[in-house]
Design a protein around this nucleic acid. Structure first.
Length: 417
RNA sequence: CGGGGCAUAGUGUAACGGUAACAUGCACGAUUCGGGUUCGUGUGAUUCUGGGUUCAAAUCCCAGUGCCCCGACCA
């Protein structure tokens, strides 16, 4: 994409109403636009990152047999009364229409997915099933905060699994731990993300969270570096330590962001809707459930928060909006012509490239923008690089670049082309 | 939901109760071209909303709304 055509632009000044690093950098770079507290619109650059995260998650969900759906955001009040959550869940958005019919704006989808499945599944042969979606969620947070990290409207991947036996559920649950680890690794924060023993809230006694260590985190976790196991401060007691085989003295305390969690729901939501199956002997039993969530906006914000430096964002290659940021310096015809040629060649090779072709912008500003926007690679074409007979290529994370030829550049970024 | 802070051009900030200013952005013209170059001209504001005090309110008072922070809450 040509940067001269991009409708967003960068800002030098930080927004006055955002303190958190993730929101500050994302807004300065034009990735997102704040609508209200805890509500952000995604702009072209931000959407590209979001889509990449989405695709990674989708691939991993499909890999373990998840079936993707897209459920409604409007949810009937009746369903929520059946589970008792119409009045019990205080962050539920309730809206009414012109006939004063009351409906919920979905904060989660147990109340929707269970009746849907009940419509189709009734035999033990119909299980197990795993259903997921990537969709906007609404929660009336009393205090939205930390930029993208705790919002009122946010995009979440929620998966629900359905089983006929405890063993089958546990087997799947264990597999999901591995799948989640893979996702966070692919997104680029695997090295600082821990599987964490935690409270189950209103759902179950315990659950597992995936916590990414950064100073901006709102949770406190304890990590046993030797074994890699971790637990949330909220469940830190002798009984739990014993159960996990950990000693208090060896634990390191960290601030962390909860980027994902998995729950054992048992029959909490299948029972109210009588989601059951008939087994081989003709006997009916209630279906067992698990649920598995990842907040995509929060994940995006976490990556910014955890990996940025004082100059701006540093995107991992797997989710960067573009693989490379190509800068043409100066208004020299030869330089511009050469940069254009390189841009066209990269496009032809299928490389995602952001081309800073703005003629009236100074070199310094282009460098600053490249640092702020955070593409993994920066390629500079200028009178100087042409004199050196090539393109100056630099990693976002490194100080010094090196001169490469177009062929070398293509080989690096499109090795299979 | 308890506590604290803030609200002024698109953005970031100034302004003793007395003509709303500066920077940046944007437009135009020069200049420059390897870390937000320099200069000129122009553009841009019901000072969050509503009330009150006053000859006079961006400024003081009250209420509301919005945003940020701390806490509580949190699938």
């Amino acid at each position: 994409m040509r940067q001269s055509k991009l409708f967003t632009r960068t800002r030098k000044e930080s927004p006055a109403d955002e303190v958190s690093k993730n929101a500050e950098l994302l807004i300065r770079g034009g990735f997102v636009h704040k609508e209200m507290a805890g509500v952000y619109s995604y702009l072209p650059l931000g959407l590209r990152v979001l889509r990449k995260i989405e695709n990674i998650i989708r691939e991993e969900m499909d890999k373990i047999g998840g079936q993707e759906v897209l459920m409604s955001s409007f949810q009937p009040k009746d369903n929520w009364e059946k589970t008792g959550r119409w009045s019990a869940m205080d962050d539920l958005y309730k809206v009414s229409d012109s006939s004063s019919r009351e409906i919920a704006l979905g904060p989660t989808h147990e109340e929707i997915v269970v009746p849907i499945l009940k419509n189709y599944a009734s035999s033990h042969k119909d299980f197990p099933v795993a259903i997921y979606q990537i969709q906007n969620k609404f929660r009336m947070e009393l205090r939205a905060k930390s930029g993208m990290l705790r919002g009122r409207e946010f995009i979440m991947k929620d998966m629900y699994s359905f089983h006929t036996s405890k063993e089958d559920f546990e087997n799947f649950y264990e597999k999901m731990k591995g799948v989640y680890k893979t996702i966070f690794k692919r997104v680029g924060i695997g090295h600082i993300t821990y599987l964490c023993f935690a409270s189950g809230g209103t759902f179950s006694e315990y659950s597992h969270e995936f916590q990414t260590v950064t100073s901006a985190g709102e949770d406190t976790i304890y990590v046993d570096e030797a074994s890699g196991s971790a637990l949330n401060k909220e469940v830190l007691n002798d009984e739990v330590l014993n159960q996990l085989n950990l000693t208090k003295e060896k634990l390191a305390e960290h601030k962390a962001i909860e980027v994902g969690n998995i729950f054992d729901l048992k029959t909490k939501y299948s029972a109210p809707f009588d989601l059951s199956y008939t087994d081989e002997k003709g006997e009916k039993s209630t279906v067992l459930m698990g649920c598995y969530g990842i907040g995509l906006g929060r994940l995006l914000g976490t990556v910014v928060e955890a990996l940025a430096d004082d100059k701006g964002i540093i995107w991992p290659e797997s989710i960067a909006p573009f693989a490379i940021h190509l800068l043409a310096l100066g208004d020299d015809e030869v330089v511009l012509g050469e940069a254009n040629k390189i841009y066209e060649n990269l496009l032809k090779a299928g490389v995602e490239v952001l081309f800073d072709d703005r003629e009236e912008v100074s070199a310094g500003e282009k460098f600053s923008d490249a640092d702020l926007l955070g593409m993994p690679w920066r390629a500079v074409v200028s009178a100087r690089s042409l004199k050196d007979n090539g393109i100056e290529l630099k990693k976002r994370t490194e100080e010094k670049g090196k001169i490469v030829s177009l062929d070398e550049l293509l080989k690096l970024l499109a090795p299979n082309h």
